[in-house]
Structures are given as C-alpha cells and as structure tokens.
C-alpha cells in the first residue's frame, strides 16, 4: 500500500480539499445567514416572531405597503438616490478626466479631497451639513433644513467618492492612441471625450451609477439629521417604525429592498463585468 487511490490522490490531499470546501461553505453560510433569516421572517404568519413559526403568510407585505410612512420613505429614497447619483456623475466625470489626464499641482490633493467622504463618519457628515443648512437658512431665509434637497446634497457626498474612484480607474485604462486617432481625424477634445472616451468607459459609468445608488439608498447615518416629517428616507422610516413596533413588517420591507438592489447588481453585471471594472 503506497497510499495511492484510484484517482492518484493521496488521502492527505483529499482531506485538505474537504477541509477547504467545508471552510468555504461555512463562510458563505455565515454571510448568507442574515439574508436567509430576514426572508424567512418576512413570511411568518404570527405577529410575534417565534420558532417554529405559527404558519406562513404574505400578509406582512400587504401591511408594509399600507404603511404610508414606509411607502413614502421608499419613494423618497428612490428619487434621492437617483438624483444624488446623477449629480454625482455629472460632477465626477469631468473631474475624473482632469485627474486621470491632467498634470497639475495639487492633483493628488484634489483626488484625496474627493475621496475624503469615505473616511469621515457618516454621522459627522450628516450633522455638519445640518448645521450648515440651518445657518444658510438663517442667513438667506431659504427653507433648506428639513427639505429633501438637503438630503440630496448630503448624499452627493456619498456618491462622489465611488464615482471618482470607478471613473478614474476606467479612464486610466483607456488606450490613449484611440483618443489620439479621434483627434487626428478631426474631432476636438470635447467631441473625442463624448464620442470615443465615454462610450469606451461605459461599463465603468454604469458601475459607478449602481454603486452610488446603492450606497445612497441604504444610508442611514448621514440622513439621520436631515429628515423631516413627510421627508423621510426608507432606512429612517424603518428605524422609526422599529421604535414602537417589532413585527415581520420590517422583514418584508427589507426583502423588497434586497430584491431591488440585488436586481440592480445583477442587471449591471449583465451589461458589464463588475469584477473587472471595480
């Protein structure tokens, strides 16, 4: 007995492989656990969450839909994320061109500044913007604090770092001779950027939009200071609901949110190779 198996692998190798598989499965299960639990919870019939559940039902989805607070929070989150992402791209695409192409003093500093919202705690961003808006409101009389535009302004800070990082990374990867070819054929730098460069980094733009949207949609700490009655984002609405009631309604809302974001990510990876552009 030399320890050889029919497959030509030694038992130690087989054991090692099994151990690797088990460890991988364990980690994946750990990551999937909250998702699975929330989905399970959302279908439980009883008002109180017990295991084993009293039965299964779809009633909490109906309850969630009929909660005005949650529904309007969902709508607010949706358009805030959409506007913040669009504005984010409008700001960062030109900025990324300058950062990826230009050589100017302070280039690195500008890049770090645009990335800095990532390192400032969200609660600090939210609080400072709130204070700022209140000050502006006192000075100018414009009703900014407590308006949804305040949330949009704050969420712009969330989308900008993601967009800058993804768009510059994609721009750096563009073959410069393709742009030079366009210039030699008579396209001005602006026309070259619009007709050649942007279509070439299209996957990066889609990825930037999706990440910006997801980050804004799920944010709670930046929005915390900026919401007002009637102008509440979904995560805040969920928080407020949980303060006086715990039932599977929130699980149902979470499932809806997971499905929405999951669909966006799946759609993106269909258009682009997310693993490649991020």
């Amino acid at each position: 007995m030399s320890g050889e198996t029919i497959l030509g692998r030694r038992p130690v190798e087989i054991l090692a492989r099994a151990a690797l598989r088990a460890a991988t499965a364990l980690v994946l299960a750990y990551i999937a656990m909250p998702l699975a639990l929330v989905v399970w919870l959302s279908f439980m019939a009883g008002e109180i969450m017990v295991v084993p559940p009293e039965g299964y039902s779809l009633r909490w989805y109906g309850v969630a839909w009929n909660q005005d607070q949650l529904r309007s929070g969902f709508v607010t989150s949706l358009w805030v994320a959409a506007v913040a992402t669009t504005l984010g791209l409008l700001v960062t695409v030109p900025a990324s061109f300058a950062l990826a192409r230009g050589r100017f003093p302070g280039r690195e500093a500008v890049l770090q500044l645009l990335m800095s919202p990532l390192i400032v705690p969200g609660i600090v961003i939210g609080a400072s913007i709130y204070v700022f808006l209140v000050q502006v409101e006192i000075e100018t009389g414009l009703p900014l604090a407590g308006s949804a535009w305040g949330i949009v302004v704050a969420h712009l800070l969330l989308t900008v770092p993601w967009c800058v990082r993804l768009v510059t990374a994609n721009l750096v990867g563009v073959n410069r001779s393709v742009e030079e070819a366009a210039l030699s054929l008579g396209a001005s730098p602006l026309v070259t950027a619009l007709t050649v460069t942007l279509p070439m980094i299209w996957p990066g733009l889609v990825a930037a939009a999706v990440f910006g949207f997801v980050v804004s949609f799920g944010n709670i700490e930046v929005s915390l200071f900026l919401v007002a009655p009637g102008q509440t984002t979904l995560p805040i609405a969920i928080l407020q609901y949980l303060q006086w009631k715990i039932d599977p309604t929130i699980a149902a809302v979470s499932v809806a949110q997971i499905v929405l974001i999951g669909a966006a990510l799946v759609a993106t990876s269909r258009i682009t190779n997310l693993g490649k552009v991020v």
């Binding site: 001779s177 393709v178 210039l183 001005s188 070439m200």
Partner: peptide
C-alpha cells in the same frame, strides 16, 4: 495647430480602432 486641424491621417502600431 492642434492635431484636429492638421488634416493628417494617422496609423498606430496598436491599430487604435474605436472598439464600440
């Protein structure tokens, strides 16, 4: 003059075609 006003035809080593 910038390249786009010179009326030149340019062929690159790496072809540089517009991929899209």
């Amino acid at each position: 003059e910038p390249p786009y006003r010179r009326n030149i035809g340019l062929v690159f080593q790496n072809y540089a075609l517009f991929p899209h």
